[in-house]
Design a protein around this nucleic acid. Sequence first.
DNA 1: ACTCGGATTCTCT
DNA 2: GAGAATCCGAGTA
Length: 220
Amino acid sequence: MPGQLLERAFFLAPPEQVAPRLLGKVLACRAGGSAQWLAGRIVEVEAYLGPHNSPPDPAAHAYRGPTARNRVLFGPAGHAYVYSIYGRHFCMNISCEAEGRAGCVLLRALEPMAGMEQMARNRNLAAGAAAAQLTSGPGRLCQALGLTREAHNGLDLLEAASPLQVRDDGWTAGDALVTPRIGIKKAVDWPLRFALAGNPCVSKTKNPRETALDAKRRSR
DNA sequence: ACTCGGATTCTCT
DNA sequence: GAGAATCCGAGTA
């Protein structure tokens, strides 16, 4: 397990700030209760804002307040919100902001770092499958790491004993792109998707206009 | 209780 | 580029 767990304070900020800072950090997951760790660098994320904002974010699951499904979002920061979509996939988010505020960051793509053979098996791909086939897309990365709502929703990502963690290995991200979010019907123009420019594992998108963002602005 | 549709992916054309 | 697969959460058609 390279690097250090992120601090809780890292996530005690609005998701539009946390999301770009998360680029380059590492998501690590213990493979099915085994000692093996699967890990990938976060290369694409989206921010979803809590309903306390004005205007509130109509594309967010938390838009209409707490429900049985989204309750993790209203809990403490740094926890995993995993939900099922289209009856066949899972998507993973990280809760942000203080308890009671439901901002979160959706993980849309990783660059595989460890356990690629297991990821390929999880994805039903050949052992030599390209990195981008393993973890490029929110549903794909969950499948590659074996993330499910039953096993991972609500887990604390910032505990040393946790089977699912977010870490900083000291790697410094390059330029980021900012675009509208993918696959939503509301607030389609809000510039809340962030991705590492030129990274081959960033998911392919229809045609969101991509805007260069200054790397300095991202780091703080 | 019932229905609509989704923060997707894959396959086939 | 289009359509299917396939489940369940959330609003109420």
